[in-house]
Amino acid sequence: NKFNKEQQWATYEILNLPNLNEEQRKAFIDSLKDDPSQSANLLAEAKKLNDAQA
């Protein structure tokens, strides 16, 4: 299913963002699990935070 693929991709991407700390990473991944339909939005937020902390 589409959300499952998006969720897996977003999880992979978030795990590989270098500037997030473990707590932030875990929070994003927990949110992905809670609502896979928000995968794209959550990934965008994670990338923004990652860039802000660069």
Results as ranks from 00 to 15, higher is better:
N1R: 03
N1D: 15
N1T: 04
K2Q: 15
K2G: 15
F3S: 13
F3K: 14
F3N: 15
F3W: 05
F3A: 14
N4W: 15
N4R: 03
N4D: 15
N4V: 07
K5M: 04
E6L: 12
E6I: 11
E6W: 11
Q7E: 13
Q7N: 03
Q7D: 06
Q7K: 03
Q7A: 15
Q7P: 03
Q7G: 05
Q8L: 13
Q8H: 04
Q8M: 12
Q8G: 04
Q8P: 02
Q8D: 04
Q8V: 09
W9N: 05
W9Y: 12
W9K: 06
W9V: 10
W9H: 14
W9T: 05
W9R: 11
W9I: 13
A10V: 11
A10L: 04
T11M: 15
T11L: 15
T11W: 15
Y12R: 06
Y12L: 06
Y12P: 01
Y12W: 13
E13G: 07
I14P: 00
I14N: 01
I14K: 00
L15I: 07
L15K: 07
L15V: 05
N16H: 10
N16P: 01
N16F: 03
L17I: 01
L17H: 02
P18Y: 08
P18I: 05
N19Y: 14
N19P: 00
L20G: 00
L20W: 00
N21D: 09
N21P: 03
N21S: 13
N21I: 06
N21G: 07
E22V: 08
E22H: 10
E22A: 08
E22G: 09
E23W: 14
E23N: 12
E23L: 11
E23R: 13
E23Q: 13
Q24S: 03
Q24I: 03
Q24W: 02
Q24A: 03
Q24E: 03
Q24P: 00
Q24R: 02
R25P: 00
R25S: 04
R25H: 03
R25N: 01
R25K: 13
K26A: 10
K26Q: 10
K26L: 11
K26N: 08
A27Q: 11
A27F: 15
A27V: 10
F28M: 04
F28L: 04
F28E: 00
I29L: 09
I29K: 03
I29D: 01
I29P: 00
D30R: 15
D30K: 13
D30H: 13
D30S: 14
D30G: 11
S31R: 14
S31H: 10
L32G: 01
L32V: 10
L32S: 02
L32R: 00
L32A: 04
L32E: 00
L32W: 02
K33I: 14
K33W: 12
K33N: 13
D34S: 13
D34H: 10
D34E: 13
D34W: 12
D35W: 09
D35R: 07
D35A: 09
P36Q: 02
P36H: 03
S37Y: 06
S37Q: 09
Q38W: 04
Q38T: 06
Q38M: 12
Q38F: 05
Q38N: 05
S39K: 03
S39L: 11
A40F: 14
A40K: 15
A40H: 09
N41P: 07
N41Q: 10
N41E: 09
L42V: 14
L43G: 01
L43S: 03
L43M: 07
A44R: 10
A44T: 08
A44E: 11
A44I: 10
E45M: 14
E45D: 05
E45P: 00
E45S: 12
E45Q: 13
E45A: 14
E45V: 13
A46Y: 02
A46P: 00
K47I: 11
K47S: 05
K48N: 07
K48W: 08
L49S: 02
L49V: 09
L49E: 03
N50L: 01
N50P: 01
N50S: 10
N50I: 01
N50T: 01
D51T: 10
D51K: 11
D51S: 12
D51A: 14
A52V: 12
A52D: 06
Q53A: 06
Q53N: 08
Q53D: 03
Q53H: 05
Q53I: 11
Q53G: 06
A54R: 04
A54G: 12
A54Q: 10
A54V: 08
A54D: 07
